[in-house]
């Protein structure tokens, strides 16, 4: 099997694309976003609920429903695990890091950043395929949009 394909579809991605965490959990929410990838018609509806405590605002729960390729579905699943329960401020930093990873054309991001991205760092191979970057970003775009709504 060609290396580049293995790099793109890392086992973490294949696993998440089959076991989609957070898929289908669409409870009542504070913010919701519907995003489409116009080139392939893939779509996602993502909902977030927020909670506040002394430390600030955090994501109390996140759910989504969608259909798309393994990259977009795995990215949503990983996103769910990464941000569920986290302070919104940190989520925004992770969002920026993930976008940096995607637009880096496969350039190393540095161990510290990769560690923060956890399973999401497995998407590094996607950056080499410009047509797939949108797939990986679909869920993150939905999250950003839902957060704007939840906080307005």
């Amino acid at each position: 099997m060609a290396e580049s394909l293995e790099q793109l579809y890392q086992q973490v991605i294949l696993d998440h694309s089959r076991q989609r965490h957070g898929a289908g959990d669409l409870e009542p929410c504070d913010g919701e976003s519907f995003q489409v990838n116009p080139t392939c018609g893939d779509e996602v509806t993502l909902k977030v609920r927020l909670s506040s405590d002394a430390e600030g605002v955090r994501i109390a729960s996140l759910g989504w429903e969608g259909q798309g390729c393994s990259i977009s579905q795995a990215s949503l699943s990983v996103l769910h695990d990464l941000v569920d329960g986290r302070p919104v401020e940190e989520v925004e930093e992770l969002d920026a890091l993930f976008r940096e990873l995607m637009h880096g054309r496969g350039q190393p991001l540095g161990d510290e950043k990769l560690e923060r991205l956890d399973d999401a760092s497995a998407f590094v191979g996607v950056a080499k395929y410009p047509a797939r970057i949108k797939c990986a970003l679909l869920g993150w775009m939905a999250l950003r949009d839902a957060l704007v709504q939840a906080r307005s």
Binding site: G68, C69, S70, Y129
Partner: peptide, 13 residues
């Protein structure tokens, strides 16, 4: 069980 994008990616490879 395989999305067209993924089909195309493997073929492209």
């Amino acid at each position: 069980g395989v999305h067209p994008h993924d089909v195309g990616q493997v073929l492209d490879d």
